[in-house]
Amino acid sequence: MLMTLGTLLQRDLTLVVRRPQDALTVVGFFVVVIALFPLGVGPEPELLRRLAPGVIWVAALLATMLSLARLFADDYRDGSLEQLLLAPEPLTLLVLVRTAAHWLMTGLPLVLVSPLLAVQLGLRPEEIPVLMLALLLGTPILSLVGAIGAALTLGVRGGGVLIALLVLPLYVPPLVLGAGALDAVMHGADAQTHLSLLSALLLFALVTAPWAAAAALRIMLD
């Protein structure tokens, strides 16, 4: 069983390596959106600092969403998804692996590039670890919840916009907690509460989202 799951992860990552533009567009979008903010609201360091938590998190949500449409769509188009449904492993686990691959491709690069953008927005060095930790806990939630939206809109015309409408409201809790964690540290408080809640949310999403996405896939392929 582990072999099958490992194979799927290996296959998905091989595809990312062979087609790196998918992953690069996501990081590129993230960086560009954040870089545009100082141009729009003006270069005052205090203002940028105050906006930073929200800006970084909203940009992360939108960047993740860009990539969701392709989470299952490519496999759906070329028929691989039917083969996955027929695989002897439970579909829930396969969806979990696929989501993990998606996170490695989109979420992890956002976490890694975030210190750079934090400096750009004037965050202090001691605030950056909290930002990264919150993103590390939060971006997998974005991928997991996004998988449900991607599965539900499979084969639907204009699915990209529909995913946004379905998924963005569900992104509110990680947004509030993630941005809140950074905000707390910036105001000299402790981010412990926010990070704990974010971890709890991640565990909840890990258990329920793959199952829901798998059920949605079965319905959409029926």
């Binding site: 296959r11 091989t14 595809l15 070329d78 028929g79 691989s80 039917e82 083969q83």
Partner: peptide
């Protein structure tokens, strides 16, 4: 083994 209309091949592999 099911072989549908589509070949389930990945162009990049």
């Amino acid at each position: 083994s099911y072989l549908g209309h589509r070949d389930a091949l990945k162009d990049e592999l």
